[in-house]
């Protein structure tokens, strides 16, 4: 059985998001498997970023439940109990369960540990690369600085915490090959480096789920390959589940364990990359065709793309 069914990290049920009269996402159900790289794909305007914004709390969903079980699987009964209780999160028999639709964006990042990047990179351009990674560890450092009081007097405990934060930042800088540029302003980095830095910054928040909004957009083939490797290492070495929106099919087919296809705010396919690739509805939606012959043509095109993957 697939991991997203046997051990879901995040379970989205009946997610609907309306903006005035426009329904961007409607009755969306999906599970994100623990330890998977899950890709959310679909044509432009399909509602992918809206789903992201709902998961990360930037939008309050019109309807729906988003349950995240941080450790160990949560039984449907436990989710029901939490839903009825009206709280935002609970610790139930070793599993920490969060209802994301009830939480504010910063709480989701801080407590539920869902980190994200943005389609149009949002680095702190006027701060250095190192500072960007330190800000990501804000909550830990805030605790260590005793809500600033200990920090004012630079107590040993705070110094230790700050050294640890710098060490983690350095580790990530080395992983993304930006160690040499640690003291440069983030806004002065080339585009590809900014993309990687944004991922590293999100990873510095110590997430269980990393949401990446088009991480390969604007990257050249070499950078794309580096990105693929980075995503795999995040999954395999850090044990962090990844949810990504991506248009670059070669990246999607290479790294994902699970692909979800969204079109006009509805899920049209959900499964392993192989299955999804062969799904005629996906091909039709993606290429905007409805003619049988064109579907076949498109299919072969997709197969050609898949051929690039090892």
């Amino acid at each position: 059985m697939s991991r997203w069914l046997s051990d879901p990290l995040l379970k989205v049920e009946g997610l609907t998001m309306r903006f005035g009269g426009l329904t961007a996402v409607s009755d969306f159900h999906v599970s994100v498997g623990r330890g998977d790289i899950t890709a959310l794909i679909g044509p432009n305007g399909a509602g992918k970023t809206t789903v992201f914004n709902c998961i990360t709390g930037f939008y309050k969903p019109t309807q729906g439940r988003l349950a995240l079980a941080r450790k160990g699987a949560a039984s449907p009964a436990a989710v029901e109990a939490l839903t009825r209780s009206g709280s935002r999160f609970a610790t139930l028999g070793g599993s920490e369960l969060f209802l994301l639709e009830r939480m504010a964006d910063h709480e989701i990042a801080h407590r539920a540990r869902v980190a994200r990047t943005f389609q149009n990179i949002r680095l702190f351009a006027g701060m250095t690369v190192l500072e960007n990674l330190i800000v990501a560890q804000h909550n830990e450092l805030m605790r260590a600085s005793g809500l600033t009081f200990f920090g004012l007097f630079n107590t040993p405990g705070f110094q230790r915490a700050e050294r640890a934060a710098v060490a983690r930042a350095v580790r990530w800088l080395e992983r993304i090959n930006l160690f040499e540029r640690a003291d440069d302003p983030a806004g002065a980095l080339p585009y590809g480096d900014q993309r990687r830095l944004e991922i590293a910054r999100a990873m510095c928040t110590d997430p269980v789920l990393l949401c990446l909004d088009e991480p390969a957009a604007g990257l050249n083939p070499r950078e794309s390959a580096e990105l693929t490797a980075l995503l795999r290492s995040i999954r395999d070495e850090d044990g962090v589940s990844v949810l990504l929106i991506e248009h670059d099919m070669s990246v999607v087919m290479q790294v994902s364990d699970h692909v979800i296809v969204l079109d006009y705010g509805r899920k049209i396919a959900d499964g392993a990359p192989q299955e999804v690739r062969e799904d005629p509805r996906v091909i039709a939606a993606y290429l905007g065709v409805d003619d049988e012959a064109e579907v076949l043509e498109a299919e072969s095109e997709m197969a050609g793309m898949a051929g690039e993957s090892p």
């Binding site: 990042a109 980190a115 994200r116 804000h138």
Partner: peptide
Amino acid sequence: EALREDEIACRSLGVN
């Protein structure tokens, strides 16, 4: 300072 640079990014990093 991060807030001055980008408030939305701050929130995504768990800054209240």
